[in-house]
Measured scan of single mutants.
Amino acid sequence: HNLTITQGKLFFHYNPKLCLSEIHKMEEVSGTKGRQERNDIALKTNGDQASCENELLKFSYIRTSFDKILLRWEPYWPPDFRDLLGFMLFYKEAPYQNVTEFDGQDACGSNSWTVVDIDPPLRSNDPKSQNHPGWLMRGLKPWTQYAIFVKTLVTFSDERRTYGAKSDIIYVQTDATNPSVPLDPISVSNSSSQIILKWKPPSDPNGNITHYLVFWERQAEDSELFELDYCLKGLKLPSRTWSPPFESEDSQKHNQSEYEDSAGECCSCPKTDSQILKELEESSFRKTFEDYLHNVVFVPRKTSSGTGAEDPRPSRKRRSLGDVGNVTVAVPTVAAFPNTSSTSVPTSPEEHRPFEKVVNKESLVISGLRHFTGYRIELQACNQDTPEERCSVAAYVSARTMPEAKADDIVGPVTHEIFENNVVHLMWQEPKEPNGLIVLYEVSYRRYGDEELHLCVSRKHFALERGCRLRGLSPGNYSVRIRATSLAGNGSWTEPTYFYVTDYLDVPSNIA
């Protein structure tokens, strides 16, 4: 807008934040220059609390790290170098490059900038070799853009010569660093050979998330399962459950009422301010606690030095998902009996873990797994792929695949051998790939016309006998059925096997 004052003059007093240069501009645009008398524009009460600059400061050096910015700028000295009290560095987070010096300023003089007072450097006698002032900004957020400017702080001049310097606002972004852990990993099994893994992005990506790394490792069953005799009275049979499938998407929606109208769909109840505040506090606490764990609990591995020492970490090797089922080394339970199943799973520490690289999504279907087997899954978020990966501390989750139908069934015939004193040795093959492992066998036998009897055969007993022995049988026709019990439950009964026990007292003698 054009402003013209045809008559009258300007009068400025007691404006401590208004620089004289701005008042002189007002004289020019209003056409009143030359009308004012000496005392109409006070030299001592206008701009006496402001830094009124008329020179431009330029930054000469900028260096960044993930949490620091090192700045240096060209030296500046007023005509009387004693008038320079120091520099004021202003900075704040700036997602967009549209910041002005006066953003967030209120009537009390406060604003949204963080201000650092910096002492002037030592003055050199040689004007050509003056030290460049600077400042190291610490405690910054990774991968965050900051708006920065600097200006001088000078003393009051009796001659009211307006001098000083100020830089333009520059924008500097800190470097990326390792992201925080992925949030809320959930693993479920939808079949006997697959596990579905879902997660949420890290709360602090500290860069642009480029991919996720998912490692999985087959877990050995508890050692007590191999040692305890679950045929003993009072000892509860062990059981394991597989990871249940995901709930429906509708039930997972946030901010939804727990109660549904019987007449149909209901609208979600909005969260109160107290609920939102509580969630923010919980989120802040979780982030602080995660940072504490990362800094205190997890110790970084030592990389190899120039002395030739090897990095103890196993090298990563990509495998196809079809090879995942046989990740671990199978060892027989008892070496003397080769027909026992290889369900003991000690994992070799030198073995390469299978892994998958996930790009542009937060889910993965891990296939080719062994049925009813526990897996430990390790999830890392990465925001750099080359020249070397920059990934987060791992988040861990466990899951067990679903049982395989008929995996616990005894394959092959049940054979028998009759000894003296009416002892019958029953023999059968253990299931080759049971659900988890076989903890015991149930032997059901009966003599024709009598009630059915049951015998429990422990895992250890089966390994020693290759089956079991029935003792003290009365003469007669017998039928026997056997079924295995694994961590997933009972298998199917075998087809009945028949044998006849004679009275050993009636056996004919070869003595003449």
Rank of each mutant, 00 (worst) to 15 (best):
K361A: 09
P205F: 14
P270K: 10
S315T: 14
R318Q: 04
S474P: 07
R370M: 13
R481E: 04
S305Q: 13
R483F: 01
P338S: 08
R466L: 08
S341H: 12
Q256N: 05
D229N: 14
T303A: 08
S342K: 03
T288V: 13
K432G: 02
V480C: 15
E378K: 08
H416G: 11
S363Y: 08
E260F: 08
G412W: 04
V329R: 07
D450P: 01
S479K: 02
T307W: 09
H254S: 15
P332K: 05
Y375V: 10
I276C: 03
P245F: 15
Q380E: 11
H425R: 11
N295S: 13
A394L: 08
P338E: 07
S344Q: 09
S304Y: 07
K278R: 09
S398M: 05
Y292W: 06
L235W: 12
R400K: 06
P244R: 11
E465D: 05
E452N: 03
T415S: 11
G489C: 02
T333Q: 15
S203V: 06
P413I: 01
L505V: 08
Y259Q: 11
Y396S: 13
R471C: 11
N339V: 11
G436P: 04
S363F: 08
E260T: 10
R240A: 02
L470N: 01
N510P: 11
R483E: 01
K357M: 12
F355Y: 09
A399E: 10
C269T: 11
E217T: 12
D311R: 07
S305H: 03
E356D: 07
C456P: 04
G264S: 06
P475W: 07
V423W: 05
K432N: 07
D311S: 15
P332A: 07
E221Q: 07
N208D: 02
A463K: 07
C468R: 02
N295P: 14
T333S: 05
K302G: 01
S367H: 05
S444T: 11
S367T: 07
Y448G: 00
R240S: 13
G264N: 15
V507Y: 05
P332N: 04
Y212L: 03
E495S: 09
N295L: 04
C267W: 02
A399Y: 07
Y259D: 07
T288R: 06
S284F: 06
V423M: 06
N435W: 00
L426D: 00
V297L: 08
N435G: 01
D450S: 14
N326A: 12
P205L: 14
P244E: 11
G374I: 10
L213R: 09
L237T: 07
S315R: 09
V480I: 14
F246C: 09
K287W: 15
P475E: 05
P312Y: 13
G234C: 15
P238C: 10
K302V: 06
L280T: 15
V345T: 07
L379N: 01
V397Q: 02
Y500V: 12
D385W: 07
T340C: 05
E281H: 15
I276M: 07
A220M: 06
A381K: 05
P354S: 11
D250R: 09
V457N: 02
P238Q: 12
S479M: 03
R318M: 05
E282S: 08
F285K: 12
T272V: 10
D506I: 11
Q275D: 07
F355A: 13
V299I: 10
N339D: 12
D273R: 14
Y441H: 02
H371P: 09
T241P: 06
Y448D: 15
F298T: 10
D229T: 09
G368V: 04
Y445L: 14
I209A: 07
L473N: 02
M427G: 14
A399F: 07
N510S: 08
K361F: 12
G476L: 00
E247N: 14
H454S: 02
V501F: 08
S223T: 08
Y375A: 01
A336R: 08
E258F: 14
V365H: 04
K432R: 05
L225R: 09
E465C: 07
D323W: 14
Y375W: 01
K287M: 09
E221G: 15
V324Y: 03
I482E: 00
R313W: 13
N490H: 00
A399M: 13
E362R: 12
P338Y: 11
G308S: 10
G322Q: 05
P244M: 13
K357H: 03
A330S: 15
I366Y: 01
Y212Q: 00
S305M: 07
T343P: 08
E433Q: 07
V457I: 08
C266Q: 11
R353F: 03
E265Q: 13
N326I: 10
L293R: 14
Q275M: 10
V457W: 04
A309N: 11
G325A: 15
Y375D: 00
T241Q: 13
Y259V: 11
P349V: 03
E388F: 06
F499W: 02
R483S: 03
S262K: 05
A405F: 12
T494W: 01
Q275K: 08
S341K: 07
S268G: 10
D273T: 04
I276H: 12
A395M: 09
C391M: 03
R471W: 09
E452G: 08
F337C: 07
G308T: 09
S248W: 06
E224L: 05
Q429M: 15
L470K: 00
R301E: 04
D204M: 01
E362D: 15
Y448L: 07
G374D: 10
Y500W: 13
R353A: 04
S262F: 14
N421C: 02
T373L: 05
C468I: 07
Q275L: 07
P314R: 15
V443K: 00
A463R: 11
V480H: 00
V324Q: 13
F462A: 05
E217V: 04
N477P: 07
E433I: 15
A405D: 11
G306Q: 14
T328K: 11
T340S: 12
A484G: 06
R316A: 12
V334C: 05
G412T: 06
E249M: 04
V359I: 12
E282M: 05
P338I: 11
P434E: 02
L379P: 01
S392K: 03
F289Y: 06
E388A: 07
R447P: 11
E279D: 12
G234N: 07
T347C: 10
A488S: 07
S251L: 13
V365P: 09
V297N: 06
R240C: 14
E282Q: 15
C468A: 06
A463E: 07
G264Q: 02
H371D: 01
Y441I: 00
S392Q: 03
G325D: 15
S492G: 13
D261H: 11
A484E: 04
P244V: 09
N421I: 05
A463N: 14
S342P: 06
P354L: 12
F298I: 11
V358R: 07
G449I: 08
D229F: 12
P346I: 15
A336V: 06
R313T: 11
G374N: 12
I366P: 00
